[in-house]
Design a protein around this nucleic acid. Structure first.
Lengths: 116, 116
DNA sequence: CAGCCATATCGATGGATGTCAATTTGTTGC
DNA sequence: GCAACAAATTGACATCCATCGATATGGCTG
């Protein structure tokens, strides 16, 4: 029900190229840090890895709870963080929720490091 | 003076290929998360950016304190985190400490995402 | 040696975050 | 409609972390 999803830029002042040289502005840095924050947890990395290695490139929560040895609410929480960061896509089919990698999202994240 | 630097693997049991498929083990995930933890702070991203954009690819603490609007101890702390993560190199010249990017470190970090 | 300067370290503190137990929501089947 | 199940949400709690002020270390210069 929340409106802000899929990595919306929160900047409302598009000015402020900061130092004149090519260094990151505070807003750019905060934006990029959001993605790395999502990646900065071992269990979330494992979730991404399992989803990526899955049969059809997708997995439901019930398949993810057991290998991580975490409770269902915790896994659900981590998945939400990854979806909010724009890395995972959620599709509800019947009672189950299937998660899959957003195409190109990992490559984009890797690209963030190149454009520092 | 600490012995553990430059991103040493902490694994002492090299077994445990976890799920049979190509998913990350808990140790691998923890290891990779360390790098992303270092990148998951906007001020640290800006530090990397400023160092990278600097004159000779290096900068000293005094040059970094002002543009970030942070206290000197805080900047020093962030720099230590980046050094411990293997992303920055510290060289003390006289009274000043000069920080520079470890060659290939950012590319290696980007590579971690490809090998999830 | 005495003072100054740049940097690192220490201790404390407020806020963010990962985790769980309990509950709620939404869907399928009887 | 009601029981059963999957998933999400809530609230609480413990831990981690970014930041600061104060202090320590180490080098330069008078």
């Amino acid at each position: 029900m929340t409106a802000l999803q899929t990595l919306e830029p929160v900047v409302d002042d598009p000015c402020c190229t900061p130092s004149g040289n090519g260094a990151l502005s505070a807003q750019e840095a905060q934006q990029k840090a959001l993605v790395f924050k999502a990646l900065a947890d071992p269990n979330r990395l494992r979730l991404l890895s399992i989803v990526k290695a899955g049969e059809a490139g997708e997995a439901c929560v019930c398949d993810l709870t057991e290998p991580l040895d975490l409770g269902q609410p915790t896994v659900s929480h981590h998945l939400k963080v990854l979806v909010d960061a724009g890395l995972l896509h959620r599709e509800k089919r019947g009672t189950w929720a299937y998660y899959s990698l957003v195409p190109g999202a990992l490559e984009d994240a890797a690209g963030l490091l190149a454009t520092l």
